[in-house]
Amino acid sequence: MAVHDTWTHRTVLLNEAVAALHIQPDGHYIDATFGRGGHSRLILSQLSAAGRLTAFDKDLEAVAEAQRMDDARFTIRHEGFMHLGELPPACAAGVLMDLGISSPQIDNPARGFSFRGDGPLDMRMDTTRGQSVAEWLADAETDTIAEVIREYGEERFAGQIAKAIDRRRQERGPFGTTAELAEVVAGAVKTREPGKDPATRTFQAFRIFINAELEELQQALEACLKVLQPGGRLVVISFHSLEDRIVKQFIAEHSREVYDRRAPFAAPKPMRLNALERTKPGDEEVAANPRSRSAVMRVAERTDVPVQVMTQRYPGANA
């Protein structure tokens, strides 16, 4: 599939993210969300001839862009990053995840991600697999639609929107385009914060749901514990609170020793990550690229802390 030259993508936190990986020239790195390759190209520029970069992306247009890169050190996989766990254990010196959708996906009406331009109601990142939003909405129960909008869009008018969608289906049949859906949502949402379209949260919810984005993120984070070498870096850029909360909680959970209260004298499970930093785009980047304003980058390092024996933690315990 050809990549349209009009729809460009500006990589968010480009230099900060690659710097956070702490590149080792001979290392193997993973770009879990290739997009349009901004992070990948910068990583490759810092690798030696012995270095390697493996990238993942579900989007055929992203894969087509990646295939234009003539570099023996680089491999692209047409898969979501939930497949990270298929890589060999401890193979990676760093994993980078740039979550969400890219500007070309938003700006191309044919992809059906945006309410700003009318197009088919699709929203699949991988158009070769799964249901489109239009197909799902044709048969989904009203309560299920409301639950999806509430859970993935954090939308307080979820119930009203779902009922409006159901009325529209009964009166005029299935939805076909983004404009049809946006119109119904706008009629159901009575108030909205200034500057935000009434359909924003609903479109976000349907996109996250249809692509199983949060479930895939959780699987990919767990896989990182397997593929990262000790000292390897995990760098994750997220763009909304649901993603960031998962990343934050995952890093926090694995950044402490875990004790089994049922076995108070057993050795604790060692911490597996060391939380390093949280970064947001600076004013200059936000001014140049307003879509970056909600980005949050979290960084952690894979570690296996030696477990101290109980006599060291509790002097005299065995006396």
Rank of each mutant, 00 (worst) to 15 (best):
R10C: 05
I145D: 11
I23P: 09
F56Q: 03
S238F: 00
P290E: 00
S48W: 05
A182F: 07
D139F: 10
A223W: 04
P270K: 02
E222Q: 15
R293N: 09
A267S: 13
L44H: 13
A134Q: 01
H254Y: 09
N211W: 02
I208A: 11
K163T: 08
R124I: 01
L217A: 09
Q219G: 14
F56E: 08
G232Q: 01
S45T: 09
R150K: 11
R201F: 05
L99C: 11
T191C: 10
E154H: 04
G112T: 06
Q204R: 06
L84C: 10
P174R: 01
V184F: 03
F239P: 13
D304P: 08
L42W: 06
E155G: 09
P25I: 00
A20D: 02
E147V: 10
M82S: 15
S238E: 03
W136M: 06
D98K: 06
L225A: 02
R293I: 03
A66E: 08
F157R: 12
Q131W: 10
P104M: 00
T11D: 05
R129K: 14
R116L: 14
R298L: 06
R10Y: 07
A110T: 14
T127P: 14
Q24M: 13
M69V: 12
T128A: 13
F175E: 02
H254V: 03
G195W: 00
V235L: 03
P109N: 07
F113M: 05
A110I: 08
D126M: 01
Q160M: 11
R77D: 13
E253A: 15
G187C: 04
V235W: 02
R150N: 10
D283F: 10
L42S: 10
T128K: 09
G282M: 05
G94A: 01
T303C: 15
V307K: 03
M310K: 13
A188P: 05
D118H: 08
F34T: 08
A212C: 12
T8K: 14
E277D: 15
R201N: 08
I30C: 02
A223V: 04
L99W: 06
A93C: 15
I76G: 07
I106Y: 11
P270A: 06
A32M: 05
N211F: 00
